[in-house]
Design a protein around this nucleic acid. Structure first.
Lengths: 186, 186
DNA sequence: GTCTATAGCTCGATAGAC
DNA sequence: GTCTATCGAGCTATAGAC
């Protein structure tokens, strides 16, 4: 793998685990055996540029990931369930919440850097849009679909936060169990 | 107000806005005209001890706040609505999300410091417990009530995250609108 | 209980050789 | 494109006078 991708992959994982400010450049560089000179060659604007690259990368990864799941599962109920199963499985296997979460980046940087806030905003919008489209093909009205997509995104992201504080996957499991009920309520 | 409370109040607001690591001790001290010596007199273990004090303080503030709202509003639907109205109003008036959110503290510190993670965990549990009790008095079964309390907490916290990225209060408003539907679905 | 001064460290970023 | 050496700023924390 080329140096640039290596940096992005390592940094993304570390940022998701510990947050943006908690991870120093030296830690990233050491983890993937790259030197400072190489980093600043690929990212002349330094750490923040690297973060934005990570967010763009994450955007593509998450989008294709969710789309694949949605293609393999006919109903949205099954799709959501297998999506959350994947998050739960990842969390249980490596102990870190790396999946579709970037709350650490959002809450640290959204109030501080506009470019970062925009990248995060685009990411959430993409996720919601995938949910939205699936819901519309299942017969939801445009308005209901966009509201539901928002609620699903929010409750999953919020559940990940609870998982992190509790060191448990129960919150995600509960949300997964309840989402079908929500869909019924429309 | 005494120095200690002053430090806690100022630090809490700044941590909520910018996150834990983004706020330096100097910034806090300057904002409330206190010197380093005074800080380390009240919090010998430094910044992290101050953070934990902020979380405990926030815990009490949020708990009494929500309990008051729940006393004034008979149905849980009205209570949730007026609770979220308050969050929306605060966000729109001062532009920062200071309300019942500490996601920045969670995502930065939960994986790094156990004492902080425990304080955050206790805070989420308290909030959920207040919801839970209200739901039980409204006739929900114990199991349904605790599931719903979790879903409500998660979706509200997730919605705040979306509000921050979008610089808009719409996500919170949408969630407020949908929660009654959720309650119906049980 | 509060002040100043400063230690000691890590950070992100830069310069210049190769 | 990658390396090392280094800068200057900012950080948390400490020491000691008052």
């Amino acid at each position: 793998m080329d140096t640039k991708s290596q940096l992005i992959n390592t940094a993304t994982a570390l940022f998701q685990q510990k947050g943006y400010k908690s991870v120093g450049l030296n830690e990233i560089l050491k983890a993937c055996n790259v030197t400072k000179g190489a980093l600043y060659h690929h990212f002349p604007n330094g750490k923040e540029e690297l973060l934005i690259a990570c967010l763009h990368d994450l955007n593509e990864a998450i989008t294709t990931d969710i789309k694949t799941i949605f293609k393999e599962n006919l109903s949205i109920r099954e799709a959501i369930r297998s999506m959350i199963d994947k998050l739960v499985h990842d969390f249980e296997s490596d102990g870190t919440l790396s999946g579709y979460t970037f709350s650490s980046m959002v809450s640290e940087m959204a109030t501080v850097s506009e470019p970062v806030r925009n990248a995060c905003s685009a990411l959430y919008e993409n996720i919601q849009h995938i949910f939205y489209e699936k819901l519309v093909t299942e017969g939801f009205s445009s308005e209901s679909a966009s509201e539901m997509a928002l609620l699903m995104t929010a409750s999953i992201e919020g559940a990940m936060m609870l998982c992190r504080t509790q060191k448990s996957t129960d919150p995600l499991k509960t949300v997964a169990k309840l989402i079908p009920n929500l869909l019924k309520s429309f």
